[in-house]
Design a protein around this nucleic acid. Structure first.
Lengths: 388, 388
DNA sequence: GAACTAAGTTTATTGAATAAACTATGACCG
DNA sequence: CGGTCATAGTTTATTCAATAAACTTAGTTC
């Protein structure tokens, strides 16, 4: 439909780009945008804005809404997202189960299925579930986003230890079943995007670090995943960061890895599990060796400082189960960062917002890839309210 | 002329973008490109390609060259860069002197001046030299690139310790004198670009690290400076990387900075100076404490590993006086990187190519900013042959 | 030398945006 | 309360860039 690359050679690509820009403006302020606002926001004329809106309505991507209050002249017709037609398929694949959700264009989850499987039945179960979806909702599916733990270029899964997959052309497989574009997304990347999209002004680089049993990083630029081939980016868990003689041996066999000191397992002990709820984690944290937590925070801070300095990052966000460690942990990290920071190099660290649904992140990437559109913070809140 | 942003809203911007693409193709293969080649390379029709070429010739950016050999039909007319009209102004500002060069569109240096000054006379001397240039070459100047040590957004110098400047609107000042667009570029960034542009296939992220009395980094993506606000990026010299008790105190007053172990001064002693030639540096290196060199290499490698992992960098390039340390140093760095690297995370390290003229880097950025064009490796070689 | 092939130009057409005139609707104000 | 102004949005004629298709030029191949 509107997907494809921006070849930028002909008028058609200009039209497509302008349709995207108009759609983007509606998505950023749904129910509050108007034709005149689009004209102002794009720099195009009112006539062109009207024409773009007409086409977007015909494509069933937006709808006319209520009349806005007058601002001194004729009242404007507001524009909203058409949530009644197109659906985004979100597939979250984990080792023993998957969640398949249908998300409307306004970010609300319409339907959710859970598929459980073993390693042996996984492929078959997934294919069946996806095929069922395609049959039930034929013609209404717009795009699909697949979140999984592992390295990917969006088309193939290069390597997933947790799923025991190597070089699997999963996007092709699902595209044949769904007949819509499929995009594979690394789980940490998806988390980072869900988080970055919440900011209205997501200027500059943001470093996102997921901390659970493992550690992964993702970099976003202006609210979107940093460009370039990100196939294997963010794999910082097993980079050596501790060099003293008492550095621990990591589960990967090497010594002094970031994960060996700063993962949740390293800091809270083997009782930790990614599935624990926040209260349980807080309990473990209270009982844990505080020196271990401090060591983890310090190693993390040192890692962050270096990366933030190279990128001139505006902010660092810590996500995953580590969020449950609360303010004290954050303060340890920030203190270590500030310890040797000059005025301009001090980078603020915060936890990811609990409200950001992870599936929203995948949907976000998929939507952005298909229509070049990002959701507004308000919609992300609506989406996450429906979750679970 | 062709500068300005790519608003992508109207036909005019498509035309501008296509002119840039056509010009880019000629720059990539000067003397070997043809109208038909541009049509193939852009996906546009032959008629459009001809029209674009006609406009570029009228703009005096390219010229018709010789007839190529036939490939089975009519012989093609080759296209070359018009080196006889437009000039790029390159200004390299250092604490006590500046080099002002005029570079033709094909990368050859036409003219070079050296201006020496004291801190007191610097502003006046620079302004006078620039004003002279504007008077002598009125109408032929296309764009100006200004390279300086310090943080900048391209328009203002935020902070330059070495020049003792804080928040100086230098681009505006020079633009008033030159009447062409002026772009300020950090010196390490310029070095990184000169280097990255030499690669024909500069895919992915490249980490460039300048090592002299100080240490600075720059990240390029596909041969161009990584996007985003890079105002203060790359300032890694004073991030703490040594945490042992015997960490040295840095000249900045803090402890364990990268510069305190891996700068040339740290590794070779206070006899080192940025102005030394390669032989002198090699002499210092031979006489220096080898343990210090090893410490520096190790600290550097640890830094590199982390950053390369986050970005999934394709390559790391070390530039500046450290090049004179030669293969042994490089091997130390690479060995430490490989020590804990898995198959996919191992990033190759090499020295910057000695032939890449630094002023070519600035000219490159300026040209790219004005015309969206990058030089081919062949031209960079030609340019550097003329240097000094 | 006839057929073919590639390079490049000419001409009519298409599509997207624009400018300018116009309609619609409400606010403001004496 | 009616005139004036401001804002929203549409209609129509025009402009501009790219395209398709026919055509010219100039070579190779058999």
């Amino acid at each position: 439909m509107l997907n494809g690359d921006d070849a930028l050679d002909t008028q058609a690509s200009v039209r497509r780009a302008n349709l995207r820009r108009a759609l983007q403006l509606v998505f950023r302020a749904p129910g509050a945008q108007t034709r005149a606002g689009i004209a102002r926001g794009t720099g195009l004329t009112a006539a062109t804005a009207s024409s773009l809106v007409a086409e977007l309505i015909e494509l069933r991507l937006i709808v006319d809404g209520e009349q806005a209050a007058s601002t001194g002249g004729k009242r404007a017709t507001t524009l909203s997202i058409d949530a009644d037609h197109h659906l985004i398929v979100v597939i979250v694949i984990r080792p023993t189960d998957a969640r398949i959700a249908l998300v409307a264009l306004d970010g609300t989850e319409v339907e959710t299925h859970r598929v459980t499987y073993t390693e042996k039945t996984r492929d078959r179960m997934l294919d069946e579930a996806v095929a069922d979806l395609a049959r039930e909702h034929a013609g209404r599916l717009l795009v699909a986003g697949v979140q999984l733990p592992g390295t990917t270029d969006g088309r193939r899964v290069f390597e997933s230890v947790q799923l025991d997959w190597t070089d699997v052309p999963l996007a092709d497989r699902f595209e044949r079943l769904l007949a819509v574009p499929v995009l594979l997304v690394n789980d940490v990347d998806a988390e980072a995007i869900a988080e970055a999209a919440r900011e209205d002004e997501s200027a500059g680089y943001r470093l996102f670090i997921h901390i659970g049993t493992g550690i992964g990083a993702a970099v976003t630029l202006d609210g979107e995943l940093a460009p370039g081939p990100r196939d294997r980016a963010g794999e910082i868990g097993h980079v050596q960061v501790v060099f003293s003689d008492d550095a621990r041996t990591c589960r990967c066999g090497r010594v002094g890895c970031l994960e060996s000191v700063a993962s949740m397992t390293a800091m809270l002990g083997d009782d930790f599990d990614d599935a624990l709820d926040d209260a349980a984690i807080a309990g473990l944290a209270a009982a844990a060796d505080q020196a271990g937590l401090a060591d983890g925070a310090r190693a993390l801070a040192r890692t962050i400082k270096l990366i933030a300095a190279v990128l001139d990052a505006a902010e660092v966000v810590i996500g995953g189960p580590a969020r449950a460690l609360g303010a004290p942990f954050l303060e340890l990290v920030q203190a270590e960062i500030d310890y040797t920071a000059t005025g301009t190099t001090r980078v603020p660290v915060r936890f990811a917002d609990a409200g950001a649904s992870i599936s929203t992140g995948v949907a976000q990437v998929a939507l952005s890839s298909a229509l070049g559109v990002r959701w507004s913070p308000a919609q992300l809140r609506a989406a996450s309210a429906l979750r679970d």
